[in-house]
Simulated scan of single mutants.
Amino acid sequence: GELCMEATKANVKEGEFAGVQLTFMGLNNQNLHNVLFRGFLKPWETYTGAKINWIDLAQADYNARLQQSIATGTVDFDIIEMGAPFEGDVCGKGLTSEMPDWVKDQIDMKDVVAYLQPPVGTWDGKQYRVTVDGDAHNFNYRTDVFADADLAKAWKDSGGGGEWGVPKTWQQVQAVTKFLKGKQFQGQDVYGYLDAPKAWGGFGFYFLGSRASAYAKHPDDKAWLFDADTMKPRINNPAWVRAIQDVIDALPSEPADQINADPNTTAFQQFLAGTGSMITWWGDVGSNVKTNDSSVVGDVTGFSILPGSDDVYNSKTGQWDKLASGPNHAPNCAYLGWGVYVMARVDSDEKKKKAAWSAAAHLGGKDLSLWCAAYPSGFQPYRNSHFNIPE
């Protein structure tokens, strides 16, 4: 934070916010998010004179706490770490402050990748979000498991389809997961895919979505969650039902009591510790396999886009289509990443409003973002400049 203060100093005088107190609500998941924000904002507090009070929430508690604040009209925070799926609940009710132009310039909005540009972060054409994260689910797998000669022989002897290797479709994921039940690898029980069925404050939905996307997102149709013309939900159509059934069918082949595993369990207690050979997650798994002290799979983890499907459901015709191009792939931009939003309750106090937006802009600053993208921070790359780094 201290090394990235130049952008703040260009817009704020030293001590300009003396006497201002702000309340920031966000996550403390995996000792990241608010835990990092505290450190990032400490030099900002020292320079500006403002003081920040913190509301820390577990991921499973976040949605309920936010919705309670909205429903009861008791918004008790000035800044919130929030994602695009909540913008209708919050921005749509006029609870957020519109981003000033100087903030857009300070954070270099034009550098943010295309899929996080407006309409993401906007409501009725007004910008509210300082993006600090870019989210997409990817497929993580054990390279050693899928290169093992003994498992390859057992796969062939069992009549498994094709050569033993990393699954490319969800149909293959299912077959491999069931095949590995009861098998041993390097003297330990080996498992296939790790589902996360336990409720996780609404965020677990994205993991089912990643199982469903290749079934439900037809390349000739922009929509997969709702019908774009009628807004009728599609989550009970045959594609989503198949994804749900896949989870039910795979659970008996997964670790004992997997039904009580949430995504934190699957990633940080299971996969990093060597349990399971396939998992869908945000980029945190990719960084943590190499950096987390609990990881034993740093040298044997591979990465890919989400598995595809041999067929895809066509919501317009009600039929399953096999594409001439081969399996259908539909990677899931799960959640669209975290952002920082300023609440409208600061708008009546210009000094407090500028302070809140300055804090948000510091967290979304271009220099600070590069550190977050490279470090296992809980935040993934979200700027074009993150992908264009001179070596």
Rank of each mutant, 00 (worst) to 15 (best):
N384G: 12
F387P: 02
G49N: 06
Q171S: 06
L22Q: 06
S97W: 05
I248Q: 13
P331R: 03
K110V: 13
Y382D: 06
Y47W: 05
E163N: 15
D257F: 15
C372G: 05
T46I: 13
L95Y: 00
K42D: 14
K168P: 02
K183Y: 08
S295T: 06
A199M: 03
A330S: 14
V300M: 14
P85S: 15
L272D: 02
A250L: 11
Q269E: 10
G308W: 05
A261H: 14
D76T: 03
L32K: 14
W123A: 04
V130A: 15
D56L: 12
W44V: 14
E254P: 06
D221T: 12
E16W: 01
I279M: 14
L66P: 02
V20F: 07
Y313D: 13
G121W: 00
L95M: 08
D299G: 15
P307A: 02
G286C: 00
D227A: 09
N236Q: 10
M343F: 14
T131D: 11
K366C: 00
I259T: 08
G365E: 07
W357H: 07
L194H: 08
Q319L: 09
E6F: 05
F205K: 03
I389M: 12
L180M: 13
A114T: 13
T317D: 12
Q258K: 07
R345V: 09
